[in-house]
């Protein structure tokens, strides 16, 4: 399913990781979608891509049957890498 998304936008991926990292507890997919502000088909593509890459994990369902998602260890690692890289880039700006 992850092949569905040919060229994921890093900004969307970053926001995805941001939301899940900040939440730290499992989130309903509708809540993630609302905070991301993506349309449903696009959101589903990204979610499946992230799950396929093991960055995001499914962590059960709630009573109403909605799936819950959580940032996996790979996702946390990727998030740290992203933050370190941005910081490093900013520190490298000198004129």
């Amino acid at each position: 399913m992850s092949a569905h998304l040919d060229k994921p936008d890093l900004y969307v991926v970053a926001r995805f990781l941001d939301i899940l990292y900040e939440q730290a507890t499992p989130m309903k997919r509708t809540n993630i979608q609302m905070r991301l502000g993506l349309n449903y088909p696009r959101f589903t593509e990204y979610l499946e891509w992230l799950v396929g890459k093991e960055l995001v994990m499914k962590s059960g369902t709630v009573d109403e049957g909605a799936d819950l998602y959580l940032l996996g260890p790979k996702g946390i690692e990727a998030y740290h890498k992203l933050v370190d890289w941005i910081k490093e880039t900013m520190e490298g700006i000198v004129i």
Binding site: Y11, D18, Y21, E22, L82, I86, T89, M90, I93
Partner: peptide
């Protein structure tokens, strides 16, 4: 919270402006 999506965008814009 962290707002790393914004930080990414900020870095991008900064590198274009400098």
């Amino acid at each position: 919270h962290n707002g790393i999506g914004n930080a990414l965008s900020l870095t991008d814009k900064m590198l274009s402006l400098m």
